Simulated assay, not measured.
Amino acid sequence: MKIHIENLTFTCIIGILEFERNNAQEVIINVEIKYAYDDEFINYAEVADFIRAAMIHQKFLLIEDALQYLSVQLKNKFSKINTLYLKITKPSILPDCMVSVSDTTHFNS
């Protein structure tokens, strides 16, 4: 099975510049989770809530750090995950484009 969470949007502190540390900015998160469904499912609402709460609480400096943290924590919380794709977008950081960083993690489970 594959879960898609698209355009999960909220504000949080993320970035290394002074104004990014002082003011929450909008982020957009896209997630793709592959897992083996065998009468137990992964609750996508819990995944979305977990990501939002972690991002707001952790106040990451770099998107890369957020991706690594979320990957480990999501696997710990949802052990059925086999492959995890995460993309974090900062839509307003540059005036003429949206900037994103993404990563795919394959777990041995």
Rank of each mutant, 00 (worst) to 15 (best):
K2H: 05
K2M: 04
I3G: 00
I3C: 00
H4W: 02
H4L: 05
H4C: 00
E6H: 05
N7S: 13
N7T: 05
L8G: 05
T9P: 05
F10R: 11
T11G: 03
T11V: 08
T11E: 13
T11R: 09
I13H: 13
I13C: 07
I14Q: 10
G15M: 01
I16N: 03
I16W: 01
L17D: 04
F19H: 14
F19I: 02
E20K: 00
R21H: 09
R21F: 00
R21V: 00
R21E: 09
N23G: 01
Q25M: 01
E26Q: 13
E26P: 06
V27Y: 10
I28P: 00
I28E: 09
I28V: 13
N30A: 06
V31H: 02
V31C: 08
V31F: 04
V31P: 05
V31D: 03
E32K: 12
E32L: 11
E32D: 10
I33V: 14
I33M: 01
I33K: 02
K34G: 03
K34N: 12
K34W: 07
A36R: 15
D38H: 12
D38N: 15
D38L: 03
D38I: 03
D39M: 09
D39G: 05
D39H: 11
E40M: 10
E40K: 15
E40Y: 13
F41S: 13
F41E: 11
F41I: 10
I42F: 13
N43D: 15
N43A: 05
Y44G: 01
Y44T: 11
Y44I: 08
E46V: 06
A48Q: 03
A48L: 07
D49R: 14
D49P: 05
D49W: 02
F50E: 09
F50Q: 08
I51W: 10
I51D: 11
R52F: 06
R52S: 11
A53S: 15
A53Q: 13
M55R: 12
Q58A: 14
Q58W: 13
K59P: 06
F60A: 03
F60S: 06
L61D: 13
L62Q: 12
L62F: 14
I63K: 14
A66G: 07
A66T: 06
A66I: 00
L67I: 03
Q68N: 15
Q68L: 07
Y69H: 13
Y69P: 01
S71Y: 06
V72N: 13
V72D: 15
V72G: 04
Q73S: 13
L74Y: 03
L74E: 02
K75Q: 12
K75V: 07
N76M: 02
K77H: 09
K77R: 15
F78R: 02
S79L: 00
S79H: 07
K80L: 08
K80M: 04
K80G: 01
K80W: 00
I81Q: 06
I81P: 05
I81V: 09
I81A: 06
Y85A: 10
Y85M: 11
Y85L: 11
L86Y: 08
K87S: 15
K87F: 08
I88F: 08
I88A: 10
I88H: 09
P91Q: 09
P91S: 09
S92M: 07
S92W: 09
S92N: 15
S92A: 08
S92I: 08
S92V: 07
S92C: 07
L94Q: 04
L94A: 01
L94Y: 06
P95C: 08
V99Y: 05
S100E: 12
V101A: 12
S102Q: 06
S102T: 01
T104V: 14
T104A: 05
T105S: 12
